[in-house]
Amino acid sequence: MADDPPLVLDIDGTLTRPDRWGIDPRVFDPIREWDAPIVLATGKAFPYPVALCHFVGIPELVVAENGGVVYTGDDVFVNADREAAQAVVDAYEAAGHSLGWGPEDTVNRWRETEIAVEISQPEQPLREIAVEYGLEVVDTGYAFHVKDPSVSKGDGVRTVADAVGIDLEEAVAVGDSENDVSTFAVVGRSFAVANADAAAKEAADVVLEDAHADGTLSVLERVRGDA
């Protein structure tokens, strides 16, 4: 039997439960047993995917903060500066808005290159202020991410692939959001789970019938041994 293909997996909306919060534990064993490199590519702050790699028991190959921070297992690449994003949210808060996470804000506490705003907060003023600072806002369905437009998950995946020798033409990606479009563009096959947004569905090679972790598990079963 051929080896399993390399995987590039988003986290929120892709490895999570249908109620949107919490990793579906059914993904742990298939991921740990996968016979090829797995890159976790997420909008989450850097410590989160690193911790998930630890808990699952796989090598730490991570693209975090939508490409802002990349870890190849040996080297950490910080590809943007948080200062501009901080200026955007300072102006947003000065205009009377909130980031929406409460005073401790563990969502942003460890971010190095971008800042996330809770999804129920006003979007249009955030986008307008971001443009003034030369930044963009990416809607992941879980948060609005204020980020440098010059970095992306796809670029981060290329960095990891070059460092560890992943053939991206053989790689399979699963995602659910517009921030996964750049990932889909650099791999051989891409799958959008059924709960994906319009941008991800348009960019994917296949739109799955199953949502959230059910969709991802169906991909793992479908492509196992295909490399």
Results as ranks from 00 to 15, higher is better:
Y48D: 10
D180K: 04
W21C: 01
G96V: 01
D81N: 13
V207R: 08
L99V: 12
A213Q: 08
G156W: 02
L7D: 10
R224V: 04
T42N: 08
A161P: 09
S120C: 00
P37A: 07
A161N: 09
N108R: 02
S152F: 10
P122N: 03
V62M: 07
F28W: 03
D24A: 12
I58Y: 13
G22A: 06
V157C: 11
F144I: 03
V76H: 00
A185L: 10
A116V: 02
D3Q: 13
D214S: 11
V117F: 03
A36M: 09
D74G: 04
V137T: 03
D3L: 14
S150K: 13
L40Y: 12
A84K: 15
L40V: 06
Y142Q: 01
D139T: 02
E104I: 04
V78I: 14
L40F: 15
A227V: 09
I31T: 04
F28N: 00
L168V: 09
V137D: 10
L40I: 13
E104D: 13
N195D: 04
R26N: 01
D180T: 04
V186R: 13
A161Y: 09
A36G: 06
P122K: 02
G67T: 08
G96M: 00
G188M: 13
A213W: 02
D148F: 08
E114W: 00
F144L: 15
K153N: 11
I166H: 07
D210M: 09
R17V: 10
D105W: 08
E118H: 14
Q124G: 01
A130E: 07
V50A: 12
A204W: 11
A94K: 11
N79K: 10
P37I: 04
H54A: 11
E93V: 15
D90Y: 04
E169W: 02
E136Y: 01
A80L: 03
P59L: 09
L52I: 11
V160P: 05
V187D: 14
L9E: 12
S190Q: 12
T159E: 14
V27L: 03
A143F: 10
D167L: 05
L220D: 05
V78N: 01
